[in-house]
Amino acid sequence: MSKEVLIQALADMREEEAVGLARQMVESGADPLDILDATRAAMDIVGQRYEKGEYFLPELLLAGEMLSQISEMVKPLLAKTQAAKREGKVLIGTVAGDIHDIGKNIVVFMLDANGFEVLDLGVDVPVQKFVEAVKEFQPQVVGLSGFLTLAFDAMKETIQALDAAGLRDKVKVMIGGGSVDEHVRAYTGADAWGRDAMAAVNLAKQWIGG
């Protein structure tokens, strides 16, 4: 019962109610995985409403806020049980020379909320750091973000470096941000480009499944 109410409160952006409800559930000894299930179900609804054009940045960001507050509560309990199942791995970062991160952070949050294990390398990420991280983290998908047009060259160089390191056919590369479009995709050699966070989620789902 309270799980359904939590899902609705989260999905409808009733922050105080949702966080309060989650706290009550934690305090009354509810299964933490149940609470996480509820957040997951709520994020599905948020994602759908975003895709339908009912929700926008304020709602995505608030969903992220509510989710992180609830995760903080649940995390200490979760360590004793088990980690949530993950769909696949996505490596992401803003390319060299560009320090913009708002768009990338929203993509990271939406991928995470949709069950992907995301490694975020941050902003102004050198080409070589992407290459090393692909080797170590072994993602199925690499997301390159950039707001400035100078990011196009950095994206291209990053993808070429993955190629040179023999890693290009092991990953799918998606790009996004600023004025990225099909021209830029072709120029950089990425597999796909996306306009928003749900496009990134859909590409990852399409490539990885889940």
Binding site: T149, F152, S179, V180, D181, H183, V184, A186, Y187
Partner: peptide, 9 residues
């Protein structure tokens, strides 16, 4: 006129 066209067109 798209910025990408100035750059990559």
């Amino acid at each position: 006129v798209p910025g990408a066209l100035f750059y990559a067109g």
